[in-house]
């Protein structure tokens, strides 16, 4: 280091010079340092001080308001339009003012009261010094020599052969524990419906044909324990009561399809509610155009044509549930769905 040595203990050295020297030793040169208000006590300076003070006081006032509101403002649920609906907005406003006050105070202080400075820091150019590199490289390469693996092929083989299964041991319990066979039991191919299972409403009550309006649709579930819950999330079904001419068209399409043959009952047809694209309930029924729209990605299915997709990203028709009416006059499934319901997957043929 050239030049006069900086004497830290020299009593003539000012604090700023200490700061500057400290920065210098850290590779930073303070090239410009100028107080905002070289003459203290000017009106302009006092004005800025007052602004900053006001900001902090505003923050304090708003914080107090927040505390008061938090403790005493009514918040328990009450229907309609009342003060409880303002609890969260009041908290938000007071907290926002508090934080904004602190923010403005600090930033105005930094921008207008703190001295203006320009500092320059040196960057490292290139990598570490060449001698450091050489030393580190030598240390690293030496590890290989020290372990002498090149000269001990038996060790080399043993380490690799031994550690490989150990690596698997770390991973396998987590994966193995989580792993669950989707085909045993084969939930993907079965729903809650089976021969004779009744179609029921959400409240588990069975349905007669005269309980569904012409031109209407009803969401139905399998009449088994838990059939209406998420335990059977693949089972929700839409039961349609079509008008005569529409039912005739639907029957023509159904009977022309080897899978859907004889699945309708009179003017009633039942399709899976679970969209074959991504699994949302495809339940927007346009009664006059007989289109079923799924709200998630806008797939549209034609109810009078085996629910085949006519728009959107879905590629497979909604499966039809074969239905009939049992001895007591209630709707029942003739069998489970004949194809897997819901979105496609690799092994779905």
């Amino acid at each position: 280091m050239t030049g006069t040595r900086f004497d830290v203990d020299d009593p003539a050295v000012t604090r700023f010079e200490l700061v500057r020297e400290g920065a210098r030793r850290d590779g930073v040169e303070i090239v410009h340092y100028e107080p905002r208000f070289p003459i203290p006590g000017t009106k302009a300076e006092r004005r800025v001080e007052r602004t900053v003070a006001m900001m902090f006081l505003l923050a304090g006032g708003a914080a107090t308001a927040f505390l008061v509101a938090y403790i005493w403002w009514p918040y328990q649920y009450e229907a309609g339009a009342n003060l409880t609906k303002l609890y969260t907005p009041v908290l938000g406003l007071t907290l926002a003012l508090t934080l904004a006050g602190i923010s403005f105070g600090v930033i105005i202080w930094a921008k207008r009261l703190l001295p203006h400075e320009v500092a320059v820091e040196k960057r490292h150019v290139g990598g570490s010094p060449a001698d450091e590199r050489k030393l580190t490289a030598a240390s690293l390469v030496n590890i290989v020599d020290e372990t002498d693996v090149a000269r001990r092929p038996l060790l080399k083989f043993a380490v690799v052969a031994g550690l490989l299964p150990v690596g698997a041991v770390a991973v396998v319990p987590l994966v193995g524990g989580l792993l669950k066979n989707p085909h045993n039991p084969d939930a993907l191919l079965h729903t809650g419906f089976a021969p004779g299972v009744r179609l029921v409403r959400k409240d588990m009550s069975p349905i007669r044909p005269e309980d569904v309006s012409v031109g209407g649709v009803e969401t139905v579930f399998p009449g088994i324990p838990g059939g209406t819950t998420n335990e059977y999330a693949d089972s929700p079904t839409l039961l349609f009561h079509l008008r005569d001419e529409d039912a005739a068209a639907a029957a023509r399409s159904a009977n022309a399809d080897p899978v859907n043959k004889d699945s309708m009952y009179l003017n009633f047809v039942a399709y899976s509610k679970i969209c074959t694209h991504a699994g949302c309930p495809a339940s927007l029924y346009e009664q006059q155009t007989h289109k079923l729209l799924c709200p998630c990605h806008q797939s549209q299915f034609k109810v009078t044509e085996n629910a085949r997709p006519v728009f959107g990203p879905a590629t497979r028709p909604l499966p039809m549930l074969p239905i009939t009416v049992d001895a007591d006059g209630f709707f029942a499934a003739k069998s489970d769905y004949k194809v897997p319901i819901g979105p496609g997957f690799w092994e779905r043929s």
């Binding site: 908290l91 938000g92 406003l93 926002a96 923010s103 105070g105 600090v106 930094a110």
Partner: peptide, 16 residues
């Protein structure tokens, strides 16, 4: 100061 401002905007939106 900016942290306080981000927090303030979050609080404002969270309440209003």
């Amino acid at each position: 100061g900016f942290f306080m401002m981000v927090f303030a905007v979050t609080a404002l939106m969270g309440g209003l």
